[in-house]
Computed example of a mutant assay.
Amino acid sequence: MPVVETAPRKFHLSVGVAALALSSVALAGCTADSTSREQRSDSYSGATSVTLDFDDAGAKQFGVTIAALSAQVIGSDRDDIEIRRTFEFTDGDKPDERIDTDGSGLMISASCPDRFAVGNPTCVARYEIAVPYGTVVQGNSKFGDLTVTDTRAAVDLNSRYGDVTLVAGPGGYAVDAVSGTGTSTVEVPQDPAGIPVRLRSGDGAVSATTDPR
């Protein structure tokens, strides 16, 4: 009899502790399902390189996180760099952004808040970046897709789960493209002495083409 009485008491105590812990997390970071949207743009002059540093691991939560920081960089005959971005986020999950420039280089850093949340937190940022021809581009992301189109300069892109794409302009390219589990496609003029391109993805597709697919 004592054994039978003791087991239920331990069970009820565990449930009470778990309920209290869950309640505390919910009060600390409850996330509503409604999503906000924000757009803005700005310009920078003098930079000859762009570095993207995206930390989109997402919040720690009970539920499903939608987190992805993606960028498309497009070369053109222009003098400045224009950054256009669209943010989509639930309350408390807005992407954090920081832009640093030292005159010759422009770094765009973005991250999703690292917090406990209950529900379906959303932290999404989509960047469209117009750069002058000859701008060197380097980018890192975890879930987001990274695309560079006709910048006519060195490219180095890496995404753990997202797709990585180069849409090449004229000229030859020295392409090093590898995907861990996804497809890898190289359809550009290969030249060991050409424009250096390094493309990496763990699970996403990797491609270097002349066709904007």
Rank of each mutant, 00 (worst) to 15 (best):
Y133M: 07
D114T: 06
G75V: 09
V118C: 05
Q61T: 15
A32K: 01
P121G: 01
R37N: 15
T48M: 02
A26S: 15
V155L: 02
F87D: 15
G134D: 13
D100I: 02
F11P: 03
P196M: 05
P2A: 00
G162H: 03
V73L: 11
G46H: 07
V3N: 08
L20P: 04
R160I: 14
E88G: 00
E88K: 00
R98N: 15
I195N: 05
F116D: 15
E38P: 01
G204P: 06
V148L: 09
Q190P: 00
T31F: 00
D77N: 09
V64R: 12
G16V: 04
D96E: 07
V155D: 08
A26M: 14
L146T: 09
R85V: 09
I74G: 08
G171N: 08
S76K: 10
R152N: 13
T183V: 12
P95N: 01
A19Y: 05
Q39F: 08
F54G: 01
T6Y: 10
R198V: 14
F116T: 12
A59R: 07
M1T: 09
V124A: 03
A154W: 06
S43K: 05
Q138C: 09
S14L: 15
L22H: 03
P95W: 00
F143I: 01
R126Y: 09
G182T: 10
P196G: 04
F89A: 07
F89Q: 08
L22M: 12
D191S: 06
T51H: 03
L27C: 04
A174H: 11
T135F: 03
F116V: 14
A67W: 04
V148E: 11
A205W: 07
R98M: 13
D114Y: 01
G171A: 07
Q39R: 13
A125E: 09
Q138R: 15
V178D: 15
P212F: 02
M107P: 03
S34I: 12
E97A: 00
G171L: 09
V178M: 09
G92R: 00
R152W: 06
T135G: 04
G171Q: 11
A177M: 11
P95I: 02
V186M: 10
Y127Q: 09
Y133P: 06
G105T: 11
E187V: 00
S24Y: 10
T135R: 02
V131G: 07
V167T: 13
V124C: 01
S179E: 15
P113N: 05
V4D: 13
Q39C: 08
G103L: 06
S45W: 04
T165W: 00
K10C: 12
V186K: 02
F11V: 14
K142P: 09
L199T: 10
I74W: 04
F87H: 03
Q39W: 04
